[in-house]
Nucleic acid binder design. Structure first.
Lengths: 111, 111
DNA sequence: TATATTAATCGTATATTTGCGATATAAAAT
DNA sequence: ATTTTATATCGCAAATATACGATTAATATA
């Protein structure tokens, strides 16, 4: 019954959905903003800026990382994160492509 | 304990996350594709094109609609759906804005 | 009016996500 | 060597999401 059927869709659809899922939480959007503003890589500073516990932030960072949107390197006793621009750009392009593809088909809508 | 803290973030962050969440499933990406290809509005035709039960598709349509990405009107005994281009465009712009805002801050990354 | 047809909703089972405290790990400082 | 500092991971509780069959609702059509 409740088997998830993601495998039944195309790779592109799955990839796009996974990318969207990584962005599908305000905390993760906020983390990306922080990483961009402080253009040097940031670690637990994020914890101070977000209204979440350290373990929760760490978990969100892990999700962003496993989705490929950020990179993280160990820097002594701390971890340094930054945005993976290439992946971000790639997904942005893919998203724009989908959007434009849809858009060019027809602007007319019946409802 | 497990109270979701979405309210603790800004409206823009919440809106973007909600938009992303609507796209965060391959079935919903696929539905948008179908709605774009058949530029006339489509109802249960989607069910025939997706590997999902009618009730499941209906649920995904409801989510896309409540996120504002599609419109739906009752047309006799059937429902006609189409993409809400305005909302889509607005979210695309907001997403691009975030992306560009981030991008312009600095291309350099330390990791 | 009875009966298809179409789609939404309900109920339910299961899976996943979110969040936090507690604990573990690992490097730096004392 | 011990302690501090910074971060990841574990374990758990609660909330959400996913999926489907069954039912309901609403409109056509016979």
């Amino acid at each position: 019954m409740a088997i998830h059927k993601k495998e039944a869709f195309s790779k592109k659809e799955q990839d796009l959905a996974e990318f969207a899922k990584a962005l599908a939480h305000p905390a993760r959007i906020a983390i990306l903003k922080v990483l961009a503003q402080h253009n040097e890589c940031i670690c637990g500073e994020i914890v101070d800026l977000l209204p979440l516990a350290q373990s929760t932030v760490s978990q969100h960072l892990k999700e962003l990382k496993s989705a490929g949107l950020i990179n993280g390197v160990v820097d002594g006793p701390r971890s340094c994160y930054c945005i993976n621009w290439k992946a971000f750009e790639k997904f942005n392009a893919e998203f724009s492509f989908l959007f434009n593809h849809l858009k060019l088909t027809k602007m007319q809508s019946c409802c």
